[in-house]
């Protein structure tokens, strides 16, 4: 094959750029004119952009992130604030109503109730769902908020207190109680008997069964004579089928007597504020267990 026939530049009237590498040359196809103009236009645009917006990362810059500020003094934070303020102002009307209404009255006002439930739901998902589950269904060690079994009470007032100050938290108003390890005091036999007795309680067996005497002596002060619990101490009800740790079998109860586990819930008042907590209270109440 004749090499000169393969050389396009001899067949066409397009020249080369003059660049040559090992005999390979480059055809000179200039960029389309419209493309060049748009390209130049973007450069001009960019200069304007530097002037208006923060752009150059100069060391002594006076903007938020240490660069040039631009004449509009635009920052992401300002933009965030602006878009948030729009939402806040839309929310403000209902929020003000909520602040001026007692939680109890909210329950009778369909619109405000709806507002509180929706707000509470989103706050719950963000702050509470990690332990209590996204539907408030709870988990081992974390109470189910849907049922009618409350450690510290499920009324609006009690819910509010629990959420505000927490349980065994570092807030001074926190709910607090400790179950002492009782194995040493009671002795091994006694622990086994009481465990069997308590396991029976939740299944509805009679209170005269074996272990009743030991139970009355050691446990009834807090958990009640018939295992009904005591909300003042956050002492769980033992006579129902709902158990925080495990499923209410003897081994589980025994281990709780020997070395009791205690849940901790942080105080939310300083983090979430009154408004959000009010909404949370209404939401938790609405799950179906509210008293």
């Amino acid at each position: 094959m004749n090499p000169s026939n393969n050389n396009i530049e001899t067949q066409d009237d397009i020249g080369t750029t003059g660049h040559e590498w090992d005999g390979i040359t480059e055809l000179n196809y200039p960029c389309p004119r419209w493309w060049v103009w748009i390209f130049l236009g973007t450069i001009v645009w960019a200069v304007g952009y530097w002037y208006i917006y923060p752009a150059w990362p100069v060391i002594s810059g006076d903007s938020e992130r240490g660069g040039t500020k631009g004449v509009m003094e635009w920052t992401q934070y300002k933009q965030l604030e602006e878009s948030q303020s729009e939402i806040f102002s839309r929310r403000a009307e209902n929020l003000e109503k909520l602040q001026n209404t007692s939680t109890k009255d909210v329950m009778d006002m369909p619109e405000l109730y709806e507002f509180a439930v929706v707000g509470g739901k989103s706050a719950f998902k963000e702050n509470c769902a990690q332990c209590h589950g996204s539907g408030g269904g709870g988990a081992k060690g974390y109470p189910n908020l849907n049922d009618d079994d409350w450690l510290w009470g499920g009324s609006l007032k009690e819910l509010s207190k629990t959420i505000k100050y927490g349980i065994r938290s570092d807030h001074k108003n926190t709910r607090n109680s400790v179950m002492p390890p009782l194995a040493a005091v009671m002795g091994k036999d006694s622990v086994t008997k009481v465990s069997r007795y308590v396991a029976g309680l939740s299944k509805g067996s009679s209170s005269t069964a074996e272990g009743a005497k030991e139970y009355k002596q050691m446990c009834s002060a807090c958990h009640g004579v018939n295992g009904e619990g005591n909300r003042i101490f956050g002492a769980p009800k033992l006579s129902d089928g709902i158990w925080l740790y495990g499923k209410g079998d003897e081994q589980q109860i025994e281990s709780q007597i020997k070395s009791p586990q205690h849940g901790v819930m942080p105080a939310w008042i300083d983090r979430l504020g009154e408004d959000t907590i009010k909404q949370l209270v209404v939401y938790v109440y609405s799950l179906g267990g509210g008293e």
Binding site: G136, N146, D147, D148, K237, G288, G289
Partner: peptide, 18 residues
């Protein structure tokens, strides 16, 4: 029917659905 939780056991061992 509620999806989460799909049912709730009450203290009297009855079941509640929402």
């Amino acid at each position: 029917h509620d999806r989460n939780p799909i049912f709730v056991e009450l203290s009297d061992s009855r079941i509640r659905n929402g």
